[in-house]
Design a protein around this nucleic acid. Structure first.
Lengths: 225, 225
DNA sequence: GCAAAAGTGTTGTGACTACACCCATGG
DNA sequence: CCATGGGTGTAGTCACAACACTTTTGC
């Protein structure tokens, strides 16, 4: 069937991570032309016998040297199809939004690029646009799903969760009311175990919390003011 | 560049229309194998020199005999990539969600399929799944954007708007509070002209309303209970 | 004037914000 | 027992659902 002339299909992965209280995406230094040595999103051409998700995982492995694991979340974002987005020829790319809650990777060809710094310097291809779309999607999903748990360990402090929301949505949030709300809609629950050995200086030890559901779940409504 | 083996790329259009107070999608009778004579979504293979949107418009023209016009709205939905979704060979398809507010088309090869009836009979390829995704997207966007105006004329009665919401979301809505809410968030506005010649039997003539914005706009929050 | 259809006003209920207060620990 | 940080309670405000009431027309 592949005697038909068709655009090349690729995937690009926008992998989010929190670093130094900033929302970042992982970029890799390109080893080949075009844009050799520039930092760009990891991407590969999709093979005939693999799904887009398989392609996205392969891009992570081949370009970022990251093996897929259970703390790595991927979902389809959107498809980017501008006629001249790739100088090599017609290529349509499906973006995959990723979140990684595991420890950070230290590879000399990988950088964590702060979202706020991206507008300043332009990335290769249409990667600026792709990232912008991904950030909008992420912000939206933070408001009406429990996707936040993909950034965190299975147990966390309420302070960590609020901090995450502040960083991603880039605004202030009242911790007290936030906790009460998420408890009421049963998005999170308290684990009765108090935390004694966190190396705190003093003060009342915080509760541990966990999400009530492990999968991505839609809340009834936008739960932020 | 097209010496690389790559999946074939296609577009399928899910064109929504209200008919007899039911949410429907337009299907066409396939003229070729596979699934000859079965009803399916209009779709075409994407050409190297056209965008996905251009492909979607071409699908509407070639399969439904509909010329693109200003009352026809199209937006990208999602990309469907199951390995064996097309029996002819690996094909990845980008779905486009469409809404048409113009008069209905009468072509013997076109049918309006009620959404609620679709689960009963299975459609070719993965078109059931595509339509399900499109319906979910549409329902979602009805709740926090003004996408509803793509179904209506520029001026409409509040009763028509409520009826649209009832049909699409498949639930009851209080007209009075609905109007007050949409006026308050300035999604719609009253046109001062009262309507005298609508052929009503009696009763107070209704106001005409219009959307305050012509483009798709996101409201601050989900505006339905 | 009466019925019908549309639009306006009101009221009780529930949810949210802000903030004061209380609790549990280390030193 | 005081300082520190976490957690709980509350009160004023705001928004909303339900529904009664008023307006404007045709006959």
């Amino acid at each position: 069937m592949n005697n038909i002339e068709t655009p090349v299909l690729s995937v690009d992965v926008i992998l989010f991570k929190i670093k130094k209280k900033k929302l970042c995406v992982l970029l890799h230094k390109r080893e080949t032309e075009p844009f050799k040595d520039a930092y760009a999103l990891p991407g590969v051409a999709v093979r005939v016998n693999e799904t887009l998700l398989m392609g996205a995982k392969r891009a992570l492995f081949e370009k970022l040297n990251i093996n897929f694991h259970k703390n790595l979340y991927l979902e389809q974002l959107a498809t980017f199809d501008a006629l001249y987005r790739d100088v090599r020829g017609r290529t349509v790319s499906v973006g995959y939004l990723g979140i990684d809650s595991s420890n950070k990777y230290t590879d000399e060809n990988i950088i964590y690029k702060n979202i706020e710094d991206i507008n300043k310097g332009s990335l290769p291809f249409d990667h600026n646009e792709i990232i912008e779309t991904a950030v909008e999607r992420l912000k939206g999903k933070m408001r009406y799903t429990n996707i936040a748990h993909k950034f965190l360990n299975s147990s966390f402090l309420i302070e960590e969760l609020v901090e995450l929301y502040k960083v991603v949505l880039n605004r202030n949030i009242n911790l007290t009311n936030f906790r009460n709300k998420l408890l009421k809609i049963e998005m999170i629950e308290q684990k009765k175990i108090l935390n004694e050995a966190v190396g705190k200086k003093g003060g009342r030890p915080p509760h541990l919390y966990s999400f009530t559901k492990n999968e991505i779940a839609f809340m009834d409504k936008d739960f932020l003011s």
